[in-house]
Design a protein around this nucleic acid. Structure first.
Lengths: 146, 146
DNA sequence: TTTGTAATCGAGATGCAGTATCACTAACTG
DNA sequence: CAGTTAGTGATACTGCATCTCGATTACAAA
């Protein structure tokens, strides 16, 4: 395993980890680099297949670190499977295409304030929420109707 | 295993299953009965512990049937654990107390229409969503401040 | 009733995602 | 450069769920 210069995104992720006190190690670097070049959401297993030289536990540890640091987010698919995906923003949600599996971030959604109000009717104090939206992306709508 | 007269709710669940073409068997009856008398949301494992005489696969098969028939719903806890809970209404969401674990249904939440609008900005056609709300229930708020 | 048969059951194997252990190694620190 | 400590990885294990397949049972037709 050789220390390669990763792509800019990978470097940035590594830097953030360093800022949080974590070391810049070769295996970690490999995991982060693999994630940085992955377009779609992925499972831990898929990631592992791309990293035959990295131990199983290390991959999971890196995933956990990145999730806890807010750089990676979990995505719950409609079939219940849990995937991972790079997180650029802070809190946000996903529009998941049930046909092609693509995911795009949902921006401009101010659901929390609405939740606060409705929950208040139940005397419930909201501290967080989890939302996934399923449907069809623009590319999967018109082209092939049926 | 003896055929006992279950409580009314259990009988109703069984009937619905029968209407859908599923048989009224003793093990199934036991599973449904156990679910019907459970107040809180529960894990498959907890349910299984109450049913030592019923096979593992049978419990899971019954859970799946009930979920697919809309009588049981899955609840995703904040820690990522999946629980099950009786579903009285149709589509609804849960207010999950992170302190005592209680769950109450969120009524009067018209989130889907709001989602449709926001998603439309992305040319995304919404077909469904999953929402869990975390926070503190009324009982867990005032009594013990810290 | 009796009987045919498809649904269902259950024991155990298997799958899959993630964690625990622990001896070893590599990265930072002084 | 040596010491400290985080990190690594092989492997065992856990938790939750599904698969397999021969045995059993519910239901309905005779």
């Amino acid at each position: 395993m050789v220390r390669t210069r990763g792509n800019p995104l990978a470097e940035q992720l590594l830097e953030t980890l360093e800022d949080r006190g974590f070391r810049d190690t070769l295996p970690r670097r490999a995991v982060v680099q693999a994630i940085a070049v992955t377009e779609r959401h992925f499972t831990a297993e898929e990631l592992r297949e791309q990293l035959p030289g990295v131990g199983r536990a290390t991959v999971f540890r890196a995933l956990k670190l990145l999730v806890e640091s807010g750089m990676l987010c979990r995505v719950l698919l409609e079939d219940g499977n849990l995937h991972y995906q790079l997180s650029h923003r802070g809190h946000h949600h996903h529009l998941l295409c049930v046909q092609c599996g693509a995911s795009q971030d949902l921006v401009g959604c101010d659901i929390e304030s609405q939740l606060q109000q409705v929950a208040a009717l139940h005397s419930f104090q909201v501290s967080g929420h989890w939302l996934e939206v399923y449907g069809r992306c623009s590319a999967c709508q018109s082209p092939q109707p049926a």
